[in-house]
Design a protein around this nucleic acid. Structure first.
Lengths: 216, 216
DNA sequence: GTCTATACTGAGATAGAC
DNA sequence: GTCTATCTCAGTATAGAC
C-alpha cells in the first residue's frame, strides 16, 4: 500500500497568450538564462519553465534552440542606448548647439546599461562565447567594431580641436568600448564595484583635462 | 560487393608516457579546447583525442571533467608573467635602482601574453564563463581582484610622486587590468588588431605625459 | 498553442579485460 | 595505463492528441 494521492487538477494550464506577450516573455527568460549560463550552458527546458510552458510548447514558438538565439540577438539592436536617446534626455551637454558631448554620451550609456544588468551581462557572456567560429552568434559579433563605428561616426559630436574627427575619434571610441567591456568583466567579481563610479575614473583618463574641459 | 578494406593494424596503440609527459599533453589540449569552447562546451572525448587517448584513458588521469578543470586552473598560477620575470629580462626600466617601472611591466605583460594566445584566451573565456555562481571555477575568479592586488602591491614600483602608493596605485592597476581584458575581447573580432600596438594607446592615456615621463 | 509521450543524440562516468 | 563495452543522464527535437 502506498501513500500516493491523486494529483490535484493542475491550475492555469494551457494559458494562451498573444504572440507578442509570449515573445516578450520568452525574450526576458532567455536573456536571463543565457546571461547566466551562456548559450551552450542554457537548457531549453529552463527557458520553458521560466515562461510557464513545456519545452515542446516553447519550441512551437522558436523552432529550435538556434531559433531562440536568433530571436535574442535580433532584438539586441532595439535595446541599446543610442546617442539619439541621449539627446532625448534634454541634457544640456547633449543638446549643445555645437554637437553632442562624447564623454557625456558614454556616461549616459554606462547609466543606461547599469540599469539593465541582465542585458549587459548577456552582451558580455554571449560576445565572448561567440568568439569561437563555430558559435551561431559568431558572425554577429565578429563585425561589431566596424558596425559600431559605422553607427557612431554619423553623429555630430562636439570635439576638442586636438581630436581629429576620423582616426582620433575612432581610436577613442574603440578604447572606450574596450574599457567598458573590461569594466563589465570586473563587475562580475569582488569586491563589488559601482559601474558609474568606476567609469568616472576611466572618463578622467580617456577625456583628460585640460583638453576636454568644456567638451564634457 | 563493397570497397571495404581490412584496416591496417593501428599504429602507436597504448603508448605509455610518463605521468609528467601525459599531464603536460593533457594541459595543452585542455587549454586549447576550453579556450575555444569554454568549459561547458568542451567535450572530454575531444581532449582525449587531442592527446591520443580514449575518453576512459583520459579519465584515468583526471578523475572527472571537473578534475580536469582543477588541473587547468591550478597551473594558471605558474604560467603568468610576473614582475620578477620582467626584472629578469634585464631591461633598464625594470632594474632601475629606484624601483620597477609600472608601465614597463605592463608592456612586458602584454608581450608575454601576446606570445601565448591560447592561455590568454583561456583566461578570458573561462573568467567570463565562471561569472556564474554555479560554475566550478567561480571561486577562483571571484577573488582575483584582491589576489592580484595583494600580489602586485608587494613589489617596489618606481612611481611619480603624483601617484599615491596605495589608492592611486590600486586604481591604476585595476584600470590597467580592465583595459587589458577589454582589449582581449576586442582581439576576438575584426578588423584584427595587434595587442602591443593597441596597448600603446592605452599606455598613453593611463600613464600620460608629463607626469609619467621618466617613470616608464 | 499547448500538451504528453517518446525518439534520438551527445556526453560523462564505470567495470573489467589486457 | 589504456582499452572496449556499457550504463546513465540530460538535452534537443518530433509526433500526434486536445
Amino acid at each position: 500500500m502506498t501513500t500516493q494521492q491523486q494529483d490535484p487538477p493542475a491550475v492555469r494550464r494551457r494559458v494562451r497568450l498573444t504572440p507578442e506577450q509570449r515573445q516578450a516573455q520568452i525574450l526576458e527568460a532567455a536573456t536571463r538564462l543565457i546571461a547566466r549560463h551562456g548559450f551552450t550552458g542554457m537548457a531549453l527546458a529552463d527557458v520553458a519553465q521560466g515562461v510557464g510552458l513545456t519545452q515542446a510548447g516553447l519550441l512551437h514558438h522558436v523552432g529550435s534552440k538556434e531559433g531562440l538565439l536568433e530571436l535574442v540577438v535580433s532584438q539586441l539592436y532595439d535595446r541599446r542606448g543610442t546617442p539619439d536617446d541621449y539627446v532625448a534626455t534634454g541634457d544640456p551637454a547633449a543638446t549643445h548647439p555645437d554637437g553632442i558631448s562624447l564623454p557625456g554620451y558614454f556616461r549616459f550609456l554606462v547609466a543606461f546599461n547599469a540599469a539593465r544588468p541582465e542585458l549587459l551581462r548577456l552582451y558580455t557572456v554571449l560576445g565572448v562565447e561567440a568568439s569561437s567560429p563555430e558559435h551561431p552568434a559568431h558572425p554577429y559579433f565578429l563585425d561589431r567594431p566596424d558596425q559600431v563605428w559605422g553607427f557612431y561616426r554619423g553623429f555630430a559630436w562636439r570635439l576638442p580641436p586636438e581630436v581629429g574627427p576620423f582616426d582620433g575619434l575612432r581610436d577613442l571610441v574603440e578604447m572606450t568600448i574596450e574599457a567598458m567591456d573590461g569594466l563589465q568583466i570586473r563587475s562580475f567579481r569582488r569586491p563589488a564595484v559601482d559601474l558609474a563610479t568606476e567609469w568616472a575614473k576611466f572618463e578622467r583618463v580617456l577625456y583628460p583635462a585640460p583638453v576636454w574641459d568644456g567638451y564634457r
